[in-house]
């Protein structure tokens, strides 16, 4: 696994060599970041400093999610909240094995589930967000089951085989390369 950086969004769309099901062209075509550094009323957070009151983009817009892979790479599930730093490009992940790919897929869907979870904590009545949360959660559960069958447990309550040595212990620890 190593990093490279996307020069533009189209590159990102073309160069993802795996998980073709997880994105579609229309999501990327609509991808934009509404942040305008010259517009002081829609600055960093949607927090309107000038009149001393907070207005939030989420109150004005319906849930506007990135495609899951794009959201994961950017670290932000929400199109209208994404704020890049300077002109740094989004890092892309170059995957070297099926195991890595499966872990990235778990990361991707878990990430979307989690970011929508945080949103739902504050907006528990958003039916659309809840629908997306459940959709991603189901996908995560499916991916974890598939991974654990092949590569061992992600969680200690997951699929651990009956053989010694104890599989939880002797499958890879995430900080060890």
């Amino acid at each position: 696994m190593n990093y490279d950086f996307y020069d533009n969004v189209n590159m990102m769309k073309q160069e993802i060599p795996f998980n073709q099901n997880s994105f579609n062209a229309t999501d990327f075509a609509g991808m934009s970041n509404n942040f305008d550094p010259n517009n002081t009323t829609s600055n960093y957070s949607g927090f309107n400093v000038l009149n001393g009151s907070a207005t939030f983009q989420n109150e004005k817009n319906t849930l506007n999610l990135f495609d899951s892979y794009e959201g994961y790479l950017k670290g932000n599930a929400f199109k209208n909240e994404y704020i890049p730093y300077k002109d740094y490009k989004v890092a892309k992940l170059n995957i070297n094995s099926e195991k890595e790919e499966m872990l990235i897929n778990i990361g991707e869907y878990s990430f979307m589930m989690h970011d929508i979870n945080l949103y739902l904590d504050v907006h528990p009545d958003d039916q659309n967000a809840l629908r997306k949360f459940i959709e991603y959660r189901n996908k995560v559960n499916e991916l974890i089951t598939n991974y654990e069958r092949k590569y061992g447990p992600i969680g200690v309550k997951g699929n651990i085989n009956n053989n010694i040595p104890f599989e939880w212990e002797n499958t890879s620890w995430p900080w060890v390369k």
């Binding site: 957070s45 599930a77 929400f78 909240e81 704020i83 945080l118």
Partner: peptide
């Protein structure tokens, strides 16, 4: 970027 998202949720 995660700080950006957390900031927004706390603000809300």
């Amino acid at each position: 970027q995660r700080e950006v998202v957390h900031f927004n949720r706390f603000n809300e």
